[in-house]
């Protein structure tokens, strides 16, 4: 082994990398919010009486689940580009991850909705609640409990997926910043090992805060 580790430049770059981590967290959070929205739409569409809607929802879900996330990001960046829709790398990454999240979460929500007994809805309705009211106050909270754990899992995956932004030229997230530092100095191992530690801490941050939230929300 003829290698001298140079950790100092990596630690000097730590503030830059932490700013990158913030961007990573931002993309992951945004993609989750948008993903949850589209997933609910997809879950509702897959139960709709219209065949075209069901078909569209099914193809979204199957495409998202059966192709690599990297492929979906490439499609958003290069594929849409040749249709004349030019997204910058941040938006393309966000679009790709959102597409992926929505596909996986739609299945989760469908399972969650099915797990709440139909009698709950009927009981709420016979107590005089409206359709929307019953859904919001009775069905939703129960469904949320069931999907909460898969939701936090998906959030961790979203953070891991943001690392793919670097392949479409994103240089502001944690991997992008690390790669920029790397091509300047070629201290690949030191920089990426530090990035790995930061990613690990980010993932732990998500799981720990989810656990705290679950403790607050589902205590009764």
């Amino acid at each position: 082994m003829h290698y001298t580790f140079h950790w100092l430049p990596a630690f000097r770059a730590l503030p830059d990398m932490l700013w990158g981590a913030l961007v990573t967290l931002e993309i992951a959070l945004l993609s989750m919010l948008l993903g949850v929205f589209f997933a609910v739409v997809l879950a509702v569409a897959s139960n709709s009486p219209y065949r075209a809607l069901r078909g569209a929802a099914a193809s979204w879900v199957e495409l998202a689940r059966n192709t690599p996330a990297l492929f979906q990001i490439y499609m958003a960046y290069f594929g849409l580009g040749s249709l004349g829709i030019h997204l910058d790398s941040f938006v393309a990454l966000l679009a790709g991850i959102t597409f992926n999240n929505a596909g996986y979460l739609a299945e989760t929500f469908r399972g969650g909705l099915r797990a709440v007994p139909a009698t709950q809805m009927r009981a709420a309705r016979s107590l005089g609640m409206g359709q929307v009211q019953a859904f919001r106050l009775v069905v939703m909270p129960q469904m949320f409990r069931i999907v909460f754990y898969p939701l936090t899992n998906q959030m961790v995956w979203a953070i891991l997926m943001t690392s793919l932004g670097v392949v479409v030229g994103l240089n502001s997230d944690l991997t992008g910043v690390t790669q920029e530092l790397n091509v300047r100095s070629f201290r690949t191992f030191e920089y990426f090992a530090l990035a790995a530690v930061i990613y690990y801490l980010l993932a732990k941050l998500v799981t720990v805060s989810a656990r705290l939230m679950a403790w607050r929300l589902f205590r009764y």
Partner: peptide, 11 residues
Amino acid sequence: RSVPLLIQLVV
């Protein structure tokens, strides 16, 4: 499970 695969590969 907590570090992106891309980073694992590079490291």
